[in-house]
Design a protein around this nucleic acid. Sequence first.
DNA 1: ATGTAGACTAAAGTCGACC
DNA 2: GGGTCGACTTTAGTCTACA
Lengths: 84, 84
Amino acid sequence: MEIETITIGTVLKRLRLSMKFSQEELAARSSLDRTYISMLERNIKQPTITTVFLLANALNMKPSEFVQQLEEEFDGHTIKRTTI
Amino acid sequence: MEIETITIGTVLKRLRLSMKFSQEELAARSSLDRTYISMLERNIKQPTITTVFLLANALNMKPSEFVQQLEEEFDGHTIKRTTI
DNA sequence: ATGTAGACTAAAGTCGACC
DNA sequence: GGGTCGACTTTAGTCTACA
């Protein structure tokens, strides 16, 4: 099975809720826009590495821990960019 | 001390050389453009999370391991986007 | 084998408004 | 509190070409 891009929506939402943050709170803590957080959770956008660091910090975890959770989501899948 | 963005240049170049890959080889293995790899190594561009996954795969390592090396680079620093 | 530059397109990320 | 839309600016990422 192949996937097109790394989507962080499910992981991000789960982690945000586990911290009992609203999207607004997470946006404030990460210096990102609330509507953009919403888009990430709905897999409409994919973040840059800097954004991942900002989000992980806002969620009080290491970026590598955050990415580790993404890995599990895509374990066994082939990553493939849409435009290739 | 503050930094503006997560730059992966040093880490990427070190890992690439440790695998004895040329930029061309890494570009082919990751389905990315050679000139773009060059820009990443010179910290002119920052990758998306999907690109990080592609690069990590090309380097035969887990994305979280790759990110872990980035963390060490920025340990103790405050991440701050330029546009904030 | 790498740096750089220019032109290009897709997509990241912001912001205001409304439901 | 969160989804969505539209308009916008900036940047990711491709490609050709030359040193």
